[in-house]
């Protein structure tokens, strides 16, 4: 019996010692200057920016990393007790969804409204874009003439049968592209488009954006639908083969004569029940500042949202492009229809 009690005590001891440790940090949260950030971004540069923010303001940045969907589920479950101050996602669709689920609160910040263009932020200030990426076509330089490329709509053309490479529809960037096509052309047209693109695919969707580019170079198909950001990553890879693959594709910005190339953002909003609202606003303002935007632009092959900051030399070498100024809120509104359309047309 004694031994049993000892074991029980030991277990309780272990459990409570772990608990106390974390309880302390929670208590601190109330008294100290800090900001709790739920983020889908997990790049080393982000950590540097957070550290700089800490140095400048003395506000400690606590980070929870997970996918945006999981973070949003977490915030929903936590409700009013949620310790989250800021939610950062890597696409606009999720930010709109978070707004619809009542997870974010509108803020008014003169700084943010002047630095961030209107179509890159929510009308009522629930969320703000921080960086941009464009969804472009990476084509085989030796097999495709850029003159033959024109629009996303053109990818439905029977000429491209067996030539198109794209990742699965579970990916948010594809969902947002589809949502923009629904918003611009209507549901019926979008469905017909997706059906034909599926018919033109070189293979079943699989892998990530980098894999699509490598498949173009390997000759599995001629055109890959990818984000600019990943081409940058490929060109700066540690693996020489990946660098070579990046060099062998050309980059085409679709719809330049029409509405412009589909773009998406990585952005942030203040949580509805943020315990440190002021710190949260200061934090987002810092990320939109010239100083932070320069870091974003340099390190991650993303386009800065702050017009005062120019893109990295690599991105500039691809030339300027006209971007679709469709309000990004539309991407969120049409997200669910996009996913369901993908299911219906069999875009895996």
């Amino acid at each position: 019996m004694k031994k049993n009690i000892l074991i029980a005590l030991a277990t309780i001891g272990i459990l409570t010692s772990c608990k106390n440790e974390t309880k302390d940090t929670i208590n601190k949260e109330v008294s100290l200057k800090e900001v709790n950030v739920y983020t889908h971004r997990h790049y080393p540069t982000d950590q540097e920016l957070f550290a700089q923010f800490e140095n400048q303001t003395g506000i400690k940045v606590n980070v929870v990393n997970a996918s945006a969907d999981e973070l949003m589920q977490k915030m929903m479950q936590e409700g009013e007790q949620s310790p989250a101050d800021v939610l950062i996602t890597v696409d606009a669709g999720r930010l709109v969804k978070a707004t619809d689920e009542n997870l974010l609160q509108p803020i008014s910040s003169e700084t943010l409204n002047t630095t961030i263009p209107e179509h890159l932020r929510a009308e009522n200030g629930e969320w703000y874009g921080l960086t941009k990426r464009a969804r472009v076509l990476a084509y085989a330089k030796d097999r495709v003439q850029p003159e033959d490329l024109s629009t996303y709509e053109n990818l439905a053309n029977a000429d491209w049968k067996g030539k198109i490479l794209v990742r699965s529809s579970g990916n948010i960037y594809n969902q947002s592209l589809m949502a923009s096509i629904i918003a611009n052309n209507g549901k019926e047209a979008a469905k017909a488009w997706a059906e034909k693109v599926v018919g033109n695919m070189a293979r079943n969707p699989k892998g990530n954006d980098r894999d699509q580019i490598k498949a173009v170079v390997a000759g599995e198909g001629d055109i890959a639908i990818v984000n600019t950001y990943y081409i940058g990553k490929l060109l700066n890879s540690k693996d020489p083969v990946e660098v070579k693959a990046g060099e062998r594709v050309g980059i085409f910005f679709p719809n330049q004569n029409g509405r412009g190339t589909h773009i998406n953002i990585s952005g942030a909003g203040v949580a509805k029940y943020a315990p440190n609202k002021e710190n949260a606003i200061a934090f987002i303002e810092y990320l939109a500042s010239k100083e932070a935007q320069e870091v974003f632009a340099k390190a991650n092959y993303e386009y800065p949202v702050n017009p005062a900051v120019s893109a990295s030399p690599l991105l500039q070498s691809w030339g300027n492009f006209k971007e679709d100024t469709l309000s990004l809120s539309e991407l969120g509104k049409n997200n669910k229809s996009a996913v369901m359309l993908f299911d219906v047309v069999g875009w895996k």
């Binding site: 440790e21 929670i26 109330v30 310790p83």
Partner: peptide, 25 residues
């Protein structure tokens, strides 16, 4: 957690925050 918060608010007027969630426990 929410129940514990309510109780401690009513009895002791302290906000204890989330005791369980977000912990290693």
């Amino acid at each position: 957690d929410k129940w514990l918060i309510e109780i401690s608010n009513q009895l002791f007027h302290i906000d204890i925050g989330l005791l369980l969630n977000g912990t290693i426990f």
